[in-house]
Design a protein around this nucleic acid. Structure first.
Length: 118
RNA sequence: GAGAGCAUACGAACAAUCGCGUAUAGUAAUAUAUGAGGAAAGUCCGGACACCCAAGGGCAGAACGACGGAUAACGUCCGCCGAAGGCGACUUCAGGACCAGUGCCACAGAAAAGUAAACAACCGAUGAGGUUCAGGUGCAACGGUAGUGUAAAAGACUACAGGAGAUAUCGUGAGGUAUCUGCCGGGUAAACUCCGUUCGGGUGCAAGAUUGAAUUAAAGGAUAAGGUGACCCGCCGUCUUUAAAAAAAUCGCUUGAGCAUUAAGGUAACUUAAUGUCGAGACAGAUGAUUGUUUAGAAACAGAAUCCGGCUUAUGAUAUGCUCUCUUUU
RNA sequence: CGGGAUGUAGCGCAGCUUGGUAGCGCACCGUGUUCGGGUCGCGGGGGUCGCAAGUUCGAAUCUUGUCAUCCCGA
């Protein structure tokens, strides 16, 4: 789990990010990216979504969410993709094939997606 | 040794590094403590708690249904009775009433419930009338089997077992046992229904309480009519009051019919007392990642959302206790 | 947190109220018509009635539990 200041919270912020229509994806994870920052004071916020349509059990969904969070946390810590900091918000949505994936699989997919951001 | 019945335990542990929720301390950096389950699940019952209506009763409705107890309460639990199944340990049972009324019982069968038909038989006179077995049908045929009896027959009579009632006795009670009485016109209420018991009604923590900048002009209450099984909501008219609404924050929120141990009472469910103890509380929603060691092995079902008592369902590898039946050996 | 509906042949639906025979359309198979195909005519096959118990002589139908799918309200 990220610290509270890095979390995307508001319902309107989610809708605004989805409407921006800037998407990067592969077969496991789909990444929605928000608007560009106007000033450097704003912190980039992130959210992780696993739909109920992907799997019925809460345990499976929580597992995917936690793996994505852990991977994103390590990326933030090492600052390996500085392009993220140009944008306000990031939403990572898991897809159907993310079920039963290991940490290394999720980590590889997320890094591959984030590297495509300009 | 084989098979079976009942019940119980465990639900991986430790360490290092990087992280998250909450609490406490601190100006802060940070430090310390603590952090999912036996089902947290399904939401099938019962409560606590909160608000609105009503406060007296009835109708209607729903649930339940042998008996005695336990409990805050229950459709749950314990004990026990009866019935059914099993060689047995044991298991299962919505287990009140078709002498209040109404309905249904396909096919077959004379007939499926109405004081019961045709043929044969017998009495009679041949007619009217009276008595009535057996066979076969079917889940079920107006009591069963064997005999006595008679013109032929029939609980008309006898014996055996069954049901019902009465008396005696045992048990808190459901009921058990013994004796007596020919008293014996189907089944179905998980068909409508009747009887008894329980439930004030409704809404559910998004209940409900407090704070609140800018903005908007509406919101609440009372009364009468209509509608409804009933209540609530809603609509229209009149009167009256001045605050109200959405995003937001705080409270509700976790000390409770709590847990552990010991003792006492009780067949048991459970109750009482003493001592000790505090074990999640989020709000886009906290337990994760990597590595090492132990182990036969990083196993199953699965993630708290106001809180309790149950029920039901899902569940891996094993381990343990008691009991029953059969076989073999001593 | 609360409420409701559905499950029957490969597909879409009846039948359940009032329990005894499971049916309709399309699809499938055979056959006739045609030079051949379609259309049309005739005939035929195919269903543990979601699952498990119970009530009953007898259950798709009645009752209870359970599984799955879909919808609605706050």
């Amino acid at each position: 789990m990220l610290q509270k200041k890095y979390r995307l919270k508001k319902y309107s912020a989610f809708i605004a990010t989805y409407k921006n229509n800037h998407i990067v994806a592969d077969d496991r994870i789909c990444v929605y990216i928000g608007k560009e920052k106007t000033s450097d004071d704003v912190i980039t916020k992130a959210a992780f979504v696993v739909s109920k349509k992907i799997h019925k059990r809460a345990v499976v969904r929580n597992r995917i969410k936690r793996l994505m969070r852990e991977s994103f946390r390590l990326i933030l810590k090492n600052n390996s993709f500085p392009n993220i900091n140009k944008y306000i918000s990031v939403i990572c949505v898991a897809k159907n094939s993310a079920i039963d994936a290991s940490f290394s699989d999720i980590d590889y997919s997320l890094k591959k997606n984030l590297s495509q951001i300009q």
